[in-house]
Simulated assay, not measured.
Amino acid sequence: MDEQHVAQLVERVVELEMRLAFQDDTLQRLNAVVTDQALRIEQLERRFELSLTDLKALRGLLYADPSQEPPPPHY
């Protein structure tokens, strides 16, 4: 191999290493974003379930069984 060919190979290897480093950094940042989003989704799901539980309890209070209500005073 002549020196020019070796220099081209070294240049290509360096370029590949730089690309790999950039992709590795990008992958780590994306992983951090996905992890944060997964945690946020879990928090929102818990809040949503609590809200549904509260809503069901309120519905039970607001819309009581009519058969258990006393008759109106004019009866």
Rank of each mutant, 00 (worst) to 15 (best):
D2F: 01
D2P: 05
E3S: 03
Q4E: 15
H5D: 05
A7P: 05
A7M: 04
A7F: 02
Q8R: 09
L9S: 09
L9M: 05
V10G: 00
V10W: 09
E11N: 13
E11F: 10
R12C: 01
V13E: 14
V14Q: 15
E15V: 02
L16I: 10
L16V: 11
E17R: 11
M18K: 13
R19N: 00
A21I: 02
Q23R: 00
D24C: 01
D24A: 05
D24T: 09
D24V: 01
D25A: 07
D25I: 02
L27A: 09
L27I: 03
L27Y: 07
R29P: 02
R29S: 01
L30Q: 03
A32W: 01
A32H: 05
A32P: 01
T35K: 09
D36H: 11
Q37T: 11
A38Q: 13
A38P: 02
L39K: 08
L39F: 10
R40T: 02
E42H: 09
E42Q: 14
Q43N: 08
Q43L: 10
Q43D: 15
E45W: 02
R47V: 02
E49M: 14
L50N: 15
L50R: 14
S51E: 08
D54S: 10
L55H: 04
L55A: 12
K56C: 08
A57N: 08
L58I: 06
G60H: 08
A64V: 14
P66A: 11
P66V: 09
Q68H: 08
Q68T: 12
E69I: 10
P70E: 13
P70A: 15
P72E: 10
P72G: 15
P73T: 11
H74D: 15
H74A: 09
H74V: 14
H74I: 12
Y75H: 15
Y75P: 15
